[in-house]
Amino acid sequence: MKLSHLNHAVVASTLVLLTSLASVAQAETVGSVDTAFKLIGPDHKVVVEAYDDPRVNGVTCYVSRAKTGGISGGLGLAEDKAEASIACRQVGPISFPGPMKQQEEVFNQSLSILFKKLRIVRMVDQKRNALVYLTYSDKLIDGSPKNSVTAVAVDRSTPIPVK
């Protein structure tokens, strides 16, 4: 009897974990362009990735960023540049499954083996009924991180629910 309860608890815990992992946004590569030829290993390039906002149906963010090639880049050991550009767009009807935080990190991606991450934060501009997305690297460059911002206007008939 106790084993049965334990099995149910394990199954329930696994389902909760899988559900939380499913809400984590995954990047989809849209395309890339080579920027520098490397004799050994992949070329340096700029990649464009799409991220669907996990808490806003109908919004996708497109991020372009440098990807280091060469031997270290091919092995995943290279440190990518701390520069990115972002453009978020309405790609379908916008809806909100529930109330949103005023400000929330919605994506992050490691750019190096050590510490540096590319982050995307969503902010709600209630006055203008818009979603503002900021991308930045947590590596400081001359005292401030490189960053880029974009916004998606939401039709006034669909108010953004904020916690």
Rank of each mutant, 00 (worst) to 15 (best):
V30F: 00
Q103D: 02
S144D: 10
P99H: 07
A153N: 09
N129V: 06
D138Y: 02
A22P: 00
R128M: 06
I86D: 09
T158W: 01
D155V: 14
S157M: 06
A78N: 08
P99R: 12
G98L: 00
S112E: 10
D125T: 01
P99I: 04
L17F: 12
V46D: 03
I94P: 04
L140D: 04
K2H: 07
E79L: 04
T14Y: 01
I160W: 10
D52S: 15
V154Y: 03
A130T: 08
N7G: 04
Q90I: 01
G98K: 13
Q109D: 08
V16G: 00
S20G: 00
K116Y: 06
P54A: 03
Q90S: 13
R122N: 03
A130M: 10
A9K: 01
G69S: 10
T135S: 07
V30R: 07
A87F: 11
M100Y: 07
I141M: 10
E49W: 08
E83R: 08
K38F: 01
L140Q: 12
G70E: 14
C88S: 05
G92E: 06
A27P: 09
K101V: 03
Y51W: 15
S72P: 04
A9W: 00
K146V: 12
V24Y: 03
N129M: 05
F107Q: 02
I71T: 13
Y133M: 09
L111E: 13
L75S: 02
A12M: 06
R128G: 01
S13L: 07
L21S: 02
A151L: 10
E104S: 07
L77R: 07
K45R: 15
K45L: 03
S144R: 12
Q109R: 13
G92M: 02
P93W: 05
E105K: 06
Y136Q: 07
S13T: 01
K139W: 11
S110C: 10
P54F: 09
V48L: 15
V63R: 10
G58L: 13
V162H: 05
S137L: 01
T29M: 11
K163A: 04
C61D: 10
H5S: 05
S32Y: 14
C61W: 12
D34Q: 08
K38W: 02
S157F: 01
A66V: 11
A27V: 06
Q126L: 05
L114Y: 12
G41W: 09
T60Y: 08
E104A: 12
K117E: 10
V132S: 06
V33R: 06
L39C: 03
